[in-house]
Simulated scan of single mutants.
Amino acid sequence: MPSKEALHAVTLWVAATHLQHVSQHAPRLAVVGPAKRCGKSRLLDVITETVHKPVITVNASTAAIFRSVTANPPTLLVDEADTLFGSPKMAEKNEDLRGLLNAGHQRNRPALRIAGPEHQPVSFPTFAMAALAGIGDLPDTIMDRAVVVRMRRRAPGERVATFRSRRDIPHLHLLRDRLAAWAGEVAELAVEREPQMPVEDRAADTWEPLVVVADLAGGPWPGLARSACAAMSAFEAGQDEEGGLRIRILADIRTAFASLGDPEALATTRLLGILKEDAEAPWAEYGTSGLTPRGLQLLLRDYGITSANIRFPDGIQAKGFARNKFLDAWARYCPTQAPAPPGD
Rank of each mutant, 00 (worst) to 15 (best):
A103E: 13
L175K: 09
A6Q: 13
R270T: 12
R107F: 01
T70G: 09
K319H: 14
A338Y: 09
G134E: 00
H18C: 00
L224H: 11
R42V: 06
R246A: 02
A203L: 11
N108R: 09
T50S: 13
S233T: 15
G304K: 15
C38N: 13
Q24R: 14
P209G: 06
A331F: 08
N108F: 15
A131P: 10
L272Y: 11
L216A: 05
K40P: 01
G244V: 00
D45Y: 09
E49T: 06
R248T: 07
T206W: 03
I142A: 12
R193V: 00
F235V: 09
A115K: 07
F163K: 05
A237S: 14
I316A: 10
G86P: 10
G104D: 03
G33F: 01
M232L: 15
G86I: 00
T57F: 07
G290M: 02
V122L: 07
G261S: 07
A338D: 14
S307C: 11
S61V: 02
G295H: 04
I56H: 12
K89E: 08
P117W: 04
Q337I: 12
P339M: 01
L216E: 01
R98P: 02
I114V: 15
L172F: 11
H21S: 14
V148K: 15
G290N: 06
E185C: 09
L179I: 04
M151V: 00
L266P: 09
I247D: 15
R193H: 11
G86V: 04
L216S: 06
W330A: 00
E158L: 06
M129K: 14
A228G: 09
S227W: 07
S165F: 11
T62A: 14
R153V: 02
A130L: 00
T292N: 08
A251R: 15
A9F: 04
A256T: 07
D96I: 01
I305G: 14
K36Q: 12
Y333A: 05
Y303R: 13
A225Y: 07
E185I: 05
F66G: 03
F257S: 04
G116F: 11
L77E: 02
R301S: 11
A103H: 07
G244P: 08
A146E: 02
Q317P: 05
D328W: 08
L174T: 11
G99Q: 10
A64K: 13
H25Q: 05
T269W: 12
C38R: 00
F312D: 02
S41R: 08
I169T: 13
F321A: 00
E264I: 01
G261N: 11
R28D: 01
L19A: 06
F85N: 01
